[in-house]
Structure formats: structure tokens, C-alpha cells
Design a protein around this nucleic acid. Sequence first.
DNA 1: GAGTGGTCTAGACCACCCG
DNA 2: GGGTGGTCTAGACCACTCG
Lengths: 293, 293
Amino acid sequence: MNSASSNLTNNATAASGAVSPTAGAPATPAATAASTPVASVNTTTAAVSAPAATASPTFSPLYQQIKALITQSLQSGEWKPGELIPSEVELAGRFKVSQGTVRKAIDELAAENLVMRRQGKGTFVSTHHEARAHFRFLRLVPDEGVPHYPESKFIEVKRVRAPADVARLMDLKSGDAVIFIKRVQYFDGVPTIVEELWLPGLIFKGLTAERLVEYKGPMYGLFETEFGTRMIRASEQIRAVCADAGAAQLLNIDLGTPLLSSERVSFTYGDKPVELRRGLYLTSRHHYQNELS
Amino acid sequence: MNSASSNLTNNATAASGAVSPTAGAPATPAATAASTPVASVNTTTAAVSAPAATASPTFSPLYQQIKALITQSLQSGEWKPGELIPSEVELAGRFKVSQGTVRKAIDELAAENLVMRRQGKGTFVSTHHEARAHFRFLRLVPDEGVPHYPESKFIEVKRVRAPADVARLMDLKSGDAVIFIKRVQYFDGVPTIVEELWLPGLIFKGLTAERLVEYKGPMYGLFETEFGTRMIRASEQIRAVCADAGAAQLLNIDLGTPLLSSERVSFTYGDKPVELRRGLYLTSRHHYQNELS
DNA sequence: GAGTGGTCTAGACCACCCG
DNA sequence: GGGTGGTCTAGACCACTCG
């Protein structure tokens, strides 16, 4: 057994045979802990199939490998949303790398909102149960006054077979079981959003109208705690359309009123699509806010 | 004179009187270069008015101060868009800090798209004259086919006095001189965007219809090279509206066709607003693409 | 006071680019 | 071959939190 438990490929540090710990590369924790010669941790250990040339064809920095390992633990549920993950020092020990390397890995995870750092306390798994997170995916804000979360009224919740277009966007087969949800959202009692959602039936088995109704707060929070599926990012396409009869009735507006149409695909770990959402937004007293940078 | 040229406040490194370079904090470059005692660089030097307590009330990391200094040089035009800035090692020497600190400052500038790093070559000031940058502020992409840049036809270019609403959004006084531009943009010959722009007259003095017409490529490129004003970020508000007579005629569509309305304020260094842009987008064959993360 | 993340330094080596 | 950014390490100290 070498390099204890993990199969990391260290593409850095000397490629010139066994080196004494004092010269060249400094002694790695692995070397001191398991008294393994430095050379054994070097130049391709495992994981990636790399012909032992001077430059690895598939170069991946150590911190990226650490990042992938941490992401795996997040995905597997070893550390659940809202929980504290091990400290940087502890992770460094576990992975046999320096704290700085772990730090860089966590830096990127924090930048991607997978994790949240709090000085003096530790690093926490991000969760949708938070004021901060509520408006990450809801960009419709009132023209005047402070943003707040709308109330939901569910129109329909049923199990259906995925239409071809839905299946294509969600990486399913046409006819696969999906859960269909239709709801209207109200800001201060004014109906403003009519929304249709499709979710993979396999993952969201057991999602019923009752559970949706009794649950207060963002749906992504419910998905996260009840179904272990966390939305990481989303891709949205926006258009202007005219209200059809259905939308007009639900939003209590005239037929033909211009509405903002949004089609969103949300992804969980591994860029796996797990939600398709089609919304119509009434933008007479609200607008879609976007920051370009 | 101490700490040579710059007024950096080092809030780190020992607060316990003069320390020999070998113990405690390692000798700083400043100390070795100007043979200044370490203590002189510590506990409040200048810049920030800090009562000499144990913890500075206005704590600012060194790398943030470096970042601010680099940003100043960008803003002042010391390093122009597209140019190479000094290497990390050189900047470290200039500011009397370690390369790691400069590195962290530049990391943030790169994340904000103010500069671009290229391994083996150096760090470059970002520019709007680049394929990469072209679609950072243009989010309207075709439903099918690859995104490409539209052609412009200018309808109107004139000097006017800023209306109250425009002045408010641009941080001007009502009645201040502004340049008003109206244009239509075509994708593959199809009129798709009608846009009105307001620019501060003071900054964009000398901007004429001729210069706009003869200039090929994104307007932000022209603004950057001809007027020394670089757009850094923008804030956009999006709505759905109906085409009025003017828009319908210019876009060759029926009156009442739903259009996407965008109001955008763009900012340059120091979060100073320097452009107001109001656009109407025809979204029958294009959509506004947005990534949520 | 102990533990956590945050800053700063110094030095080594690697990947990449260009003359 | 020399210069640039990119990675990795090690160690010191600071700011913050909590018991």
C-alpha cells in the first residue's frame, strides 16, 4: 500500500529519481507519515492512464483532483446541505496534501456556490434553505420595494409520460415517467407567474400535491432535503410572448398581454439535468433583473 | 521616507516590538531592501486613518490594496486595453510585497474580467476587441445556428439635453449634455433589435454618426479605443412589451407583436455609470440566453 | 484559549511561450 | 534558454467564533 487510500496523481515535484527530503522538493506529508520515498508519489501513480512520458498528456493539478474528491463526497451525501465539512487542516491530512492545496480546491467550490466559508466557524455545504440562496434562481423583482418570495398555489400535480421535447431537454427517453407540476405564484396577492415544471419520475418518486402544499419556502429546498437532489446551476432562455387564454385567466389579465417567457433547465452534480421549468411572467410591476459582468 | 513610494498598510506581521528577521515574521522585502526595521511597516503606517489600537477598525488585506493600485493604473491608462502589464515578479518588487500577494490581487482582477492571464506570455488588460468579449454583453442568440454579431444601421445621432429619467439613471444633472443614438441591428439581414443609447456628452465629445458608421465591430470597442472609456459591468432590467408603431415599422413587424424590452446601465471603473441603453428585441427566432449559477 | 478560515511570505518546480 | 504564469509546500501570524 502506498499513498494511503486515495489515488492522486501528483504531476508536480521532481522527476529525477529518488531525492533526499532536504534538497529539491521538500518532504511531502505522505513521505514523512508513511515513510514512503518521495519518488513513489511522483510521475503518474494511478487514476489517469498516462504513458510515462516527461509531460503527462492529461495534466490535472492536484487541487483539481482534491476538488473532484470533495465534490464526490458532497454528491454522495457524506456531507449534507447545511452541514459543516471537515476543516482544511483535516482534509489536508486525509488527502496527504498541504493545506494550501485543499484551500485552493475549496476556493473554487465556494466560487461555484457548492460550499460556503465562514471565518472562524468552518466551511458549510450550501443549501437552498437560506435567504441568500432564495434569489439566486428567482430573478423577477418588484419595480418598487424590496424583493420578497411569492406565494404558490398549485393547479395540478400528476405523473405523466415525458413528451418528446421535454425528454430531449432532460436527457430522458420519450415516454419516461415524469412528474408534472403547474402552479401560479402571487406577489402581495397579485398573480404574477404561471409555471409548469417537469421532474424525472425516478428521482422524485413520492412527490405529491400534499407535500408541495404543506411545504413552505422554495421548492429547491424541498427537493434538496426530501429527495437528496440539489440544483447547482441552470440555463435559461427568455422570450416575449402574448398571453393565451389559459395564462390570461390564471393571471387575471387580458388576452394578448405581453408576457416574459422563460424556459429553464436546471442541473445537479455532474451537469445532470433534473428539472425543466417553463414560466410566464407578468412584467407590468416586476422585471427580470440581470447583472452582466 | 519609509516603505518606499507606496502607502500600504500592512495589518499582518508581528505587533510585538522589533523582531529579529530569523524569528517570528520572516524579513519582508521592504525590510531587506531599504533596511527599515520590520516594526516600521507594521501597525498602521498611513493611508487609512486608524487609531493605533490592537485591531485596525478598517481592516483591508494587503492584496486588496495592491488590487486597488493596479486598478488605478488600469483606469489612468498607464496600461491600455490589449497591452501587457508588468509581470507578477516585477509588480511584487514595485509594491514591496511577495509574488503570492500580487498573484491574489491579479486573480481577483481576472475573475472580474479586468485583465486576462495567459500562461507563458503574461497578463493582459482586457479589451472589447475580442471574440471572447463580444458576447459578454450581447445575450441575444439565435434559436438555431451559431451566435454571430449583428450589423448596425444608425437611424439618428444627436446631441441633446438629458431628460430627467435618463439623468437620474446616469448620475447626471437633468439638462446635462448627452449624446443620443438610435440604431437598428440586423441578423442575417433580418431587423431584430431597435436600440436607443444615451452617453455623457462630456466623455464622448466628438462622437459622430460618421465615426460610428465607419467603425466595424462592437461599439464598446470604439468607446474603449477612441474615448478611453471601458465598460466593466452592466445591470439590466428586462420586460415584455408590445411593439408600438415606431418599433413595428423599424422591425418590419405587426403592431402589438410582443418584444423583449431591456434597460441597461453600463459602468466603467469606480462603478461610474457611462451608458444607458434601451433595447427592444424581437424574439421570434432569437432568445435571451442566461446562465444562473 | 483553542479551533477555524484568511493573509502573507518564501522557495521550488512545472507547463507554456517565444526568440 | 530565459521569462511568464501555474502549482505545491511549509510556516507564521491575523481575524473571527465559541465555549
